[in-house]
Write a protein that binds this DNA or RNA. Sequence first.
DNA 1: GGCACTATTGGCGATGTGTCAATAAGCCCT
DNA 2: AGGGCTTATTGACACATCGCCAATAGTGCC
Lengths: 202, 202
Amino acid sequence: MVHVEAARRRRLEPDTRREQILSVAIRLFGEKPYAEVSTTDVARIAGVARGLVNHYFGTKKDLYLEVVRVMLTVPSVAVERLAEGEPHQRADAMVNWFLDVVSRHSTSWLAAISAGGIAGDTDVDAVISEAVDVAADGVLAAFGLGDQPPEALRGMARSYVGLAIYTGREWLQRGALNRDQVHTLLTTTLLTMVDQVFPQAR
Amino acid sequence: MVHVEAARRRRLEPDTRREQILSVAIRLFGEKPYAEVSTTDVARIAGVARGLVNHYFGTKKDLYLEVVRVMLTVPSVAVERLAEGEPHQRADAMVNWFLDVVSRHSTSWLAAISAGGIAGDTDVDAVISEAVDVAADGVLAAFGLGDQPPEALRGMARSYVGLAIYTGREWLQRGALNRDQVHTLLTTTLLTMVDQVFPQAR
DNA sequence: GGCACTATTGGCGATGTGTCAATAAGCCCT
DNA sequence: AGGGCTTATTGACACATCGCCAATAGTGCC
């Protein structure tokens, strides 16, 4: 006779348990949109009572914010290494780096990006906006505009990042563009913006 | 003594009632994000039983889709009028038209755009994506590339629209850019893309 | 004025979420 | 080894929202 264990309750280190639940949440939110993932699902798959999820992460949205944060956390590159050579080379290197990162984590990246607002949700927007800020500052730094940039300049850089994001989706999600096309589009526009647009925001 | 009417039930034409409820929904979804608007709110403000909302619009998301559709429906311009003159003039006219439309309906436009996915919700994405398609086709038409464009070209045009959207937010929501700066950014990048990027997608 | 059509209501059942007191797992100390 | 204590974990309660549907009552028509 098979011995059916009554799934005894196990007690883990808070950090361990927290991370375990988080990994389950990352997987689920990567598969289905926010509304279609219930904390009950997360708890059940993690083999845990639903109350525990709330205990560790507070509200469901808090958990989701944590997930998006992780998904958008990108191996921060040594930006200094990009800030070398001709402008054309810098743009090329930066775009390549972006495309590498994005294509490597494509599914989770797409999920996180298209989380752009739980229909305008303030908190989620803030998290994404922060990630965009980091990327934009990276762009500016690569062209030696990194220290104390005026707000307008940062706005323009963020716009460019927005273009990169949108074009990335066009490549990875829609499949309307291939990597080469995305590459030319992004390098070309980046160079024109650095040359002709950025100077307008002194 | 004040005569307190017992709010008698009133019977309207289905079309009228539907539109009345829809207008309330448009207002509410323009003010708060999706999750913070309940069909109960909509019904109460419309002075109607909640069941009626479901009766006319089906599910809550269906109602929301309808709202986003209306918000994104833009006075379609006579594109032909944009397709005149030098490329620089065409770009200028197109960007100006976009900025006019967007600034006029700024609040509802922002709400609809930042609805970009109820965290990746498929249906909402489809509606927004459709609006982007229309705009992208407009861009192509303005430069005489409108008939039977290859999919890659449409993808590039959509990317540009994505840039425009993102830059618009940077202007109207963040306030990091002023209209002039947005204008130069969009015209400059549009011209480079038409000149140097679009040709790559034959 | 009565009747039929149907717009409108109100309540039921199901699902999901946050909270909190009760429970028990596992370590420490004797 | 065993009893006690900390606290990780549970389970249930209260509340909100949603979709659905039979019952109700305006309103125009004969």
